[in-house]
C-alpha cells in the first residue's frame, strides 16, 4: 500500500455499472515526509475518506477485494484513513487534526 492525501474527487455519471454508487477520490501519493511522490491517481473509496485526509490505498487486483462479491473494475482503492504515522529517520510532523468528516453513509 502507499500513503496519500485525498486532493479531490471525480464525478462520473456515465461509467461502468460496477462503479455506480461508489465514490471516486483523487489521491496524491505521499512519502512519509509528506512530499508528493509521483502523479495523482483516481482510487475508489472503501472507507469513507474525505477531501484533505491522509489515507493509504492498495493497487492492483486486490483493490477490487473490498467490494466483493460485487465486481468493481478498479486498480486502486483507499482502504484506510491514517490517524498518524511515525518514521525513525524522517521527522514526522505533529499529527494533523483531520478536517470535519462527512456524515457516514447510511
Amino acid at each position: 500500500m502507499q500513503l496519500a492525501r485525498v486532493i479531490g474527487n471525480v464525478v462520473s455519471t456515465i461509467k461502468d455499472p460496477g462503479l455506480v454508487g461508489l465514490t471516486l477520490l483523487v489521491v496524491q501519493p505521499l512519502s512519509p515526509a509528506r512530499e508528493a511522490v509521483g502523479r495523482p491517481l483516481v482510487a475508489v473509496d472503501a472507507v469513507g475518506a474525505g477531501a484533505g485526509e491522509e489515507v493509504f490505498f492498495v493497487r492492483g487486483r486486490a483493490a477490487s477485494f473490498p467490494f466483493l462479491p460485487a465486481v468493481v473494475p478498479t486498480d486502486a482503492a483507499v482502504t484506510g484513513i491514517c490517524d498518524h504515522w511515525t518514521t525513525d529517520d524522517v521527522p514526522a510532523g505533529p499529527p494533523r487534526r483531520s478536517p470535519r468528516r462527512r456524515a457516514p453513509r447510511r
Binding site: 500513503l3 472507507v47 482502504t79 484506510g80 484513513i81 491514517c82 490517524d83 518514521t87 524522517v90
Partner: peptide
C-alpha cells in the same frame, strides 16, 4: 522497516494487522 502507521478507520480485514512503513 522505517516506521509504522496507526489507522483506526480501515478495511475490516486490516483490523489487528500491524502496518509498517
Amino acid at each position: 522497516v522505517i516506521g509504522s502507521v496507526v489507522a483506526t478507520r480501515k478495511h475490516r480485514t486490516l483490523v489487528g494487522a500491524k502496518l509498517l512503513l
